[in-house]
Design a protein around this nucleic acid. Structure first.
Length: 222
DNA sequence: GTCCAGGGTTCGT
DNA sequence: ACGAACCATGGA
């Protein structure tokens, strides 16, 4: 594949501009898994409210969620939107978790097996699986999302219409090897999301953002 | 009032 | 193998 020196440079530029983000907010691997499902197409501020509801009800555990009445679970999830769908997805994930013997058990699986099994769970697609792998289990998996496509398309480093896996491998090959891959992927994705929502949408002109000199099209927004 | 957020499933072509 | 409808709250 063609050499792409831009990927590391863009990371350094974003890191310099915004500093370390220390994702994912959450007190446990399980909480991160729950957050990954709840944040699907949803603002994180709304997800925090739903997680707070679960905590206050002492329901933030695989057993509680799996055993809860879907109706009551939906009430707790209401602030995060799609509450009926997400109630079902969380229960699917929790029942799967319990069937495997819990978080501690699957934490010892090799990354490719863990990823394959996660993708087989109802409600967990490629991005949610990779969020979980990277942020809950500290595996070196690069997360691709809509912001990643937008920003790197404008930077002319990708076409934008590649499949998820193709894009993921592009990023992973461009950034490997590294002494702390997990740390790099962790910060990179967080910085992409931060830059995407705080700059690209509000101020689409690249001349106004930290990536100005690296952006051929001069537009990083939509 | 309109737009869209840290997507995935399902069902048409 | 793609495209579109669907889900639903809250902040800008």
């Amino acid at each position: 594949m063609k050499h792409r020196p831009g990927f590391r440079r863009i990371y350094k530029t974003l890191f310099t501009a915004y500093g370390p983000q220390h994702w994912w907010p959450g007190d446990s691997a399980f909480e991160i898994m729950v957050g990954a499902v709840l944040t699907q197409n949803t603002a994180w501020t709304n997800v925090e409210k739903a997680i707070a509801n679960l905590k206050h009800a002492r329901a933030l555990s695989p057993e509680s969620i799996a055993g809860a009445h879907p109706r009551r679970l939906a009430v707790w999830l209401k602030p995060s939107g799609y509450f009926n769908i997400k109630a079902r997805r969380l229960q699917a994930m929790c029942r799967w978790l319990l069937a495997q013997g819990g978080v501690k058990r699957i934490a010892r699986w090799p990354t490719d097996k863990l990823r394959h099994e996660l993708l087989a769970v109802h409600g967990i697609g490629p991005e949610t699986a990779d969020d979980i792998l990277l942020y809950a289990f500290n595996r070196p998996v690069f997360v691709i999302d809509a912001y990643t496509r937008r920003i790197f398309k404008r930077l002319r480093l990708i076409d934008g219409d590649e499949g998820y896996e193709t894009l993921r491998h592009t990023f992973e090959k461009a950034l490997d090897p590294d002494t702390q891959l997990v740390r790099l992927y962790n910060e990179y994705h967080a910085l992409i999301v931060l830059h995407g929502k705080d700059v690209c949408r509000k101020k689409p002109r690249c001349g106004e953002c930290c990536l100005a000199r690296l952006c051929p099209s001069r537009v990083t927004g939509l």
